[in-house]
Amino acid sequence: MLTLDLKEIFKISDRFVGSYELKPEDLKLPSEIGVIKEPVNVNLEITKDKEGYKIRISIEGNVELECSRCLETYVKDLTQEKTKLLQNTPNEEGVFMLKPKDLEVSFLEEPDIVDVAQLVREEIILSIPMKPLCSPDCRGIPGYQVEFEEETKPQKRNNSFAILKDLLAGKGGR
């Protein structure tokens, strides 16, 4: 388990930079989500922020996914770079409201301790689509004819208020 004690790091320096190679078994990605077969490279830059710690994370690697239409496996590139805020878990009991900016916050399970593998696993899981497709035009399982409806113009519906509208417009026939 690769952990960083941020309290100790920031006693020495006001910025932390690190590069890591995480093995698939370090990431423990659930198999129903996807399979990582090769190490994932991670670069971190962490600075102290008034609300916690600002982290810039860069991830390079691949994950094998199963296409939700044709059921074939394919490889998705995980390369991404993201900046987010790390904060200690709030001690407040009860309900608190999230703001849109709070969605870019990760909470630390232990005060001032970052589990790098858990942080990277979270980013990988968030980057995988709910319905992965090997390509946008995937036609489904080979040998089965899947017909996709062509986009058509909406048909005019019988509007029961059309008569009332005509009456109000003065087009009513007496």
Results as ranks from 00 to 15, higher is better:
N41G: 06
K28F: 06
F10R: 14
L44Y: 12
E25T: 05
E21V: 01
V40D: 05
G34N: 10
G34E: 08
E38L: 12
T47L: 12
D14C: 01
G18K: 04
L44Q: 12
S13K: 14
N43D: 15
N43K: 15
V17E: 12
I46C: 04
K11P: 00
I33Y: 11
S31Y: 03
E60C: 07
G52T: 13
F10H: 09
L6H: 01
K11R: 13
L44E: 06
D5N: 14
P24W: 05
E32Y: 11
K54H: 14
K7R: 13
D5E: 02
I55H: 04
S31W: 00
K28V: 09
G34Y: 12
V35Y: 02
K11E: 07
E32Q: 14
F16W: 10
L22K: 14
V35A: 10
R15T: 04
Y20M: 01
V17K: 13
L29Q: 00
N41M: 01
T3A: 04
N43A: 15
P30T: 05
T3R: 10
E45T: 12
D26N: 13
K28Q: 15
P30M: 07
L2K: 07
N62K: 12
T47D: 11
G61V: 06
P30C: 11
F16Q: 03
V17A: 09
I46G: 07
F16S: 03
L44H: 12
L29I: 15
L4D: 02
E38V: 08
V17D: 09
G18V: 00
L2Y: 04
M1R: 10
K7E: 11
N43V: 11
M1A: 11
I33H: 07
L4K: 04
E45Y: 03
L6G: 03
V42W: 07
E60Q: 14
I36Y: 05
G61S: 12
P30S: 07
K23N: 14
Y20A: 01
S58D: 15
D5T: 01
S13W: 01
V42Y: 05
E32P: 05
D26T: 05
D5I: 00
D49Y: 09
G61T: 03
S13A: 11
D5C: 00
S31N: 02
I9D: 03
K23D: 11
D14A: 05
E21L: 10
K37L: 11
E51G: 02
E8P: 04
D14V: 00
L22D: 08
N62L: 05
K48M: 14
I36N: 05
P30V: 07
K37I: 01
M1W: 03
R15V: 04
T3L: 03
V42H: 08
T3N: 07
D49T: 02
L6R: 01
V42E: 04
K48R: 15
N43I: 06
I57R: 13
E38R: 14
R15E: 08
L44F: 14
S13F: 01
S19L: 00
I57N: 08
K50C: 06
S19C: 07
S31H: 03
Y53I: 03
K7C: 01
L44D: 10
K11A: 07
V17R: 11
K54S: 15
P24G: 06
G61N: 10
D14S: 13
I59D: 06
L6Q: 03
F16M: 02
V40N: 09
I55F: 05
K37V: 03
V35P: 00
K50E: 15
E32H: 15
Y20N: 03
L29C: 06
L6D: 00
L29P: 01
L2F: 02
